[in-house]
């Protein structure tokens, strides 16, 4: 191996980075001008490695790997379709949030942190689905009695199943990802350093206008979670409360934000 190859060359690295960026912009410009399946496929292949990087951080066991890749790829596809060249971000920075979001949803909906007997797990999922179906079908929020009738379970069974719901990852599912992935985050363009600066970016200004509608506590939590990239567990420690409480406040705050913005705008936030 030559001496030249062994030495880092900052000027060369910078040129490569600029070249990559230009290629990326060209690819997306072409895709946005002609969003045909072939162009989409090209982008999917190019950025598939990003999905593996993120999945690697979330993998709890080998049996989840394929599912997580599938969910992450869905996130990647969404990111490709929503990417806005005018914001001048690197695609990888933007896609990171979307891929991570899909994986989080997977954990939230389908995985359990503690070993729960299969019949109880099935009962809990049945109750969870019934709640969603009833909520969609009727104007009123469902009650335990409604769910019991719908599922042919007793009210006690429904209550037990609902309580089991808290066996879904009792701690923040972000813990594994955020505690150890500083290296990867920084190898991309760090969101904390530039892209999530609330005063100087388009998205930041948009967020600032939304946050004024929230209570002080809600604002603090949203800022810490989305802009300082802290986990729910870290926030809970800072605020001297439980992760469950933080999660609930965050859910309420996001609900308020959802009501304040148009669906299309909400999608464009790309973070929730």
């Amino acid at each position: 191996m030559s001496e030249k190859a062994d030495r880092p060359n900052p000027a060369s690295d910078q040129r490569e980075s600029e070249q990559e960026r230009a290629e990326e912009r060209a690819l997306f410009a072409r895709y946005q001008a002609d969003p045909c399946p072939a162009n989409e496929e090209l982008l999917l292949k190019k950025y598939q490695s990003l999905v593996y990087k993120i999945v690697h951080k979330f993998t709890h066991g080998s049996d989840q790997f394929d599912d997580l890749v599938q969910e992450g790829t869905k996130g990647l596809l969404l990111a490709i379709r929503r990417f806005d060249l005018s914001l001048n971000y690197r695609f990888s920075t933007y896609a990171w949030q979307t891929i991570q979001g899909e994986i989080q949803r997977y954990f939230r909906d389908r995985t359990w942190a503690v070993n729960v007997p299969r019949d109880l797990k099935e009962k809990s999922l049945k109750v969870f689905k019934a709640r969603e179906e009833l909520a969609a079908a009727q104007t009123n929020e469902p009650t335990v009695t409604d769910v019991a009738k719908f599922t042919s379970l007793s009210e006690e069974d429904v209550l037990e199943a609902m309580e089991l719901g808290s066996a879904y990852h009792p701690q923040s599912f972000m813990d594994n990802a955020r505690d150890g992935d500083a290296g990867i985050m920084l190898s991309e363009e760090s969101p904390g350093a530039e892209h999530l600066d609330m005063r100087t970016t388009k998205r930041g200004v948009f967020w600032e206008n939304l946050l004024i509608h929230l209570t002080d506590v809600e604002q603090r939590i949203i800022r810490m979670y989305f802009f300082e990239q802290r986990t729910q567990k870290e926030i809970a420690t800072i605020l001297n409360t439980s992760q469950m409480n933080v999660s609930r406040i965050m859910r309420n705050a996001i609900g308020k934000i959802r009501r304040l913005v148009e669906p299309a705008d909400f999608e464009n936030l790309g973070m929730l």
Partner: peptide, 30 residues
């Protein structure tokens, strides 16, 4: 967990929705 289960049982007796019941459980548990 005992407190949460009691609250959910009582809220069910009152006929509160699951959304409200979950909120009561969380608030009183916290």
């Amino acid at each position: 967990s005992v407190v949460r289960l009691l609250v959910s049982g009582l809220a069910t007796r009152m006929g509160l929705s699951i959304e409200d019941l979950e909120k009561l459980k969380l608030v009183i548990g916290e």
